[in-house]
């Protein structure tokens, strides 16, 4: 019954399959391969099973980096999502102000990531930086190269400055898509500003906010270039996030096996949490009383 003609569709899928194979499947499987072997040099390797995984999971420095990473990404979401929504709500709805604010907001998104780190190094330098000098002249000691808390504050400020505009743009697009009639209906019902936000704007923004949360979660969990340029992971290990630590192992110490095992764990964590966020946001706020 199954005719050859019926299977022609496979040929149509083939190009996509080949592209995905080279762009994702083969590199990923190479990493899987590395993670199961101990490699000394070209052609010198031995199969070690899940030894690297066990070693990595038990590694205290990795655990520290992991918790640091969770704290960082958690703070990013807690600050950037509400802030982004607030700014979007405050943005002008018509006139020249729309394009002006959109362009201003887009500026941080257009700057290369390592340049952002450099900008912030200069900006926060205690001797010449605008921010560093200002804050020090107020009598507050501030130095992100020496004090862990200051390094964190600077990194957070940089991250929020860099990426909140993305959340704003998404939220703004969501808000603009709400038909005017919804606001009229709310006015006729006598709904307050808060009720209008809670029952019209927020539910209507659900789709774009889901994307914003997922993007900011993944991106902040993978953060590398900006803190690497700004603090290099220090002072000490204060801002050594997962990817910075990973690069240290992989290229600094050239421990390919452990680094590969670590990468896979890293990948699974992001996948798992993205799935959890997606499921949660899909169902949140349905059938409120």
């Amino acid at each position: 019954m199954e005719k050859w003609e019926n299977n022609k569709a496979w040929f149509l899928v083939l190009p996509v399959f080949i592209i995905v194979a080279f762009s994702a499947i083969i590199p990923l499987m190479t990493v899987v391969n590395y993670s199961l072997q101990d490699i000394w040099g070209p052609g010198q390797q031995v199969f070690v099973g899940i030894e690297w995984f066990e070693e990595m999971l038990a590694n205290e420095r990795l655990q520290d980096a992991l918790w640091r990473q969770f704290l960082f990404s958690g703070l990013v979401l807690l600050i950037e999502i509400p802030l982004g929504i607030l700014i979007a709500l405050a943005m002008p709805k018509r006139g020249w102000g729309v394009s002006a604010s959109l362009v201003t907001l887009a500026v941080p998104l257009l700057i290369p990531w390592n340049v952002i780190g450099t900008i912030w190094i200069i900006f926060t330098r205690p001797d010449i930086g605008l921010f560093g000098v200002t804050i020090n002249s107020l009598g507050i000691a501030f130095d992100h190269t020496a004090r862990p808390l200051d390094a964190w504050i600077t990194t957070m400020l940089m991250e929020v400055w860099h990426w909140t505009p993305l959340v704003v743009l998404l939220a703004y697009a969501g808000l603009r898509a709400i038909p005017e009639a919804y606001y009229q209906a709310a006015r006729i019902d006598g709904a307050s500003v808060w009720a209008t936000f809670r029952y019209i704007q927020l539910p209507k923004m659900r789709g774009v906010l889901t994307i914003a949360v997922l993007l900011r979660w993944m991106d902040s969990f993978l953060i590398y270039a900006e803190p690497f340029a700004l603090t290099g992971g220090g002072p000490g290990n204060a801002t050594t996030f997962l990817s910075i630590y990973l690069v240290k192992i992989a290229t600094g110490q050239f421990d390919l096996g452990p680094a590969a095992a670590f990468s896979l764990i890293y990948f699974l964590i992001i996948l798992l949490f993205s799935f959890i966020f997606y499921q949660a946001l899909l169902n949140v706020g349905k059938g409120d009383k």
């Binding site: 006729i188 019209i200 209507k204 349905k286 409120d288």
Partner: peptide, 26 residues
């Protein structure tokens, strides 16, 4: 006043029951 629009305007996160009740809740 009460108004019905060309588009179907209901509160998206409220059930039909709560939607109908919404003008009275205030």
């Amino acid at each position: 006043i009460a108004m019905v629009y060309q588009q179907f305007i209901n509160y998206p996160s409220l059930t039909v029951y709560n939607n109908i009740a919404s003008p009275l809740n205030v």
